[in-house]
Design a protein around this nucleic acid. Sequence first.
DNA 1: CGTATGACGTGCA
DNA 2: GTGCACGCCATAC
Length: 86
Amino acid sequence: MTLFAQTIYNIVRRIPKGQTMTYKEVARAAGRPKAYRAVGNILNKNYDPNILCHRVIRSDGSMGGYNRGASTKAKRLKEEKVHNPT
DNA sequence: CGTATGACGTGCA
DNA sequence: GTGCACGCCATAC
């Protein structure tokens, strides 16, 4: 566990329900606005269900991937926020 | 220390 | 609008 990862998890857990953050936003909040690659990398390696990693999506509005499966992420987003993904 | 990988982002065809 | 290629940062080997 590195400081970077801890920061990422900390920020992601702070994401309120009904809201989503892009990897870029999280990376920026972590202090590395250009480290969105690493952000995704860390979240990918992270399998802690306590982390609201499903609230983190891509800048395009795509959900990207998910450690439990993109389907789960999509469903969770639908129940939490995304009722109608444009 | 150097190389390879990845839940990404942006640019071009 | 979709698909391909390049660049970015951090982690793992």
